[in-house]
């Protein structure tokens, strides 16, 4: 990597009470790179992802996305509310449980960020939101409320909502873990499409076959440390560490992606 990475994380530490969840994590994501974070539950991968957009404030180390860098730990001042908000506006996040706004229609969900955060005119935001909904294949659901959508559709709306902020990077926090198996494919397809368009992404996932297809780098975490890191195919096909091997033995690692039957 000759170019400076888009995301740069150094010596990151985080504890919840006496439980140290992240122990000295370093991570680089190149511009346009797709990094998959895998590992058993409790390994710290979701916390690491949430540290990238500072939904979780680290105890030590530094986080840089694009030109904005925050340092944490002794002597470092905690970032104020405004600069945190400005920083988060440049990173999109997709949650395991969608977290769509139930009191708004699909279209209003997608317009909310542009209108409230970017102060975009309603008419422009409407156009942008409809374009994003069309991109995830849900243009005709614009006026429906989230409660009427399937899990896969909800998650695609959540992706459209994040994309409407035109973020530099996208973070996916187990985006398919709460979905029925037959709905996983439609969401993975959208993520794959984003990857092919050159979006910089960090993906926490249990879909090993998907990680192998879409990610160019893979990070295996356990107990708050990075156990193994490398090109996704290499790590999945020939893991060096015994812990990685043990974890991967629980999964089908290759094969086709689940069929995407609802992207239309």
């Amino acid at each position: 990597m000759s170019e400076t990475p888009k995301i740069e994380i150094r010596a990151l530490r985080k504890s919840f009470g006496s439980n140290e969840v992240l122990k000295n994590i370093n991570l680089d994501v190149a511009k346009g790179g797709v990094v998959a974070l895998i590992g058993p539950s409790g390994s710290g991968k979701s916390t690491l992802l949430r540290c990238i957009n500072l939904l979780v404030v680290p105890d030590g180390g530094s986080v840089r996305v694009g030109d904005t860098r925050f340092s944490f730990g002794e002597g470092a001042k905690l970032p104020d509310v405004k600069s945190l908000a400005r920083f988060r506006a440049t990173t999109g996040m997709v949650f395991q449980h969608f977290n769509l706004f139930p009191h708004m229609t699909t279209l209003q969900n997608v317009m909310e960020g542009p209108v409230t955060v970017r102060r975009m005119a309603k008419a422009d935001a409407d156009k942008l939101a409809r374009a994003q909904l069309a991109k995830v294949g849900l243009a005709e659901k614009a006026d429906q409320y989230p409660a009427t959508l399937s899990g896969g559709q909800k998650q695609r709306v959540a992706i459209a909502r994040a994309l409407a902020m035109e973020p530099d990077v996208m973070l996916f926090d187990e985006a398919t873990s709460a979905l029925d198996p037959e709905l996983v494919g439609e969401v993975l397809n959208v993520i794959q499409q984003l990857a092919s368009e050159g979006m910089t992404m960090v993906i926490v996932t249990h879909e090993i076959a998907f990680a192998r297809e879409v990610a160019d780098r893979l990070i295996f975490m356990r107990d708050g440390v990075v156990v193994e890191e490398g090109p996704a195919r290499q790590v999945i096909d020939n893991p060096k560490e015994s812990a990685t091997r043990a974890f991967l033995s629980h999964f089908h690692r290759t094969g086709a992606l689940p069929p995407a039957n609802a992207v239309s």
Binding site: T91, G92, N99, M165
Partner: peptide, 24 residues
Amino acid sequence: GQSEAGAALGMTPGQSMRRIVLPQ
């Protein structure tokens, strides 16, 4: 998760209270 989603979009705590949490 609602206020987290607001924060992730770049809302300040006040914005997410007014736009997301209070209406519900």
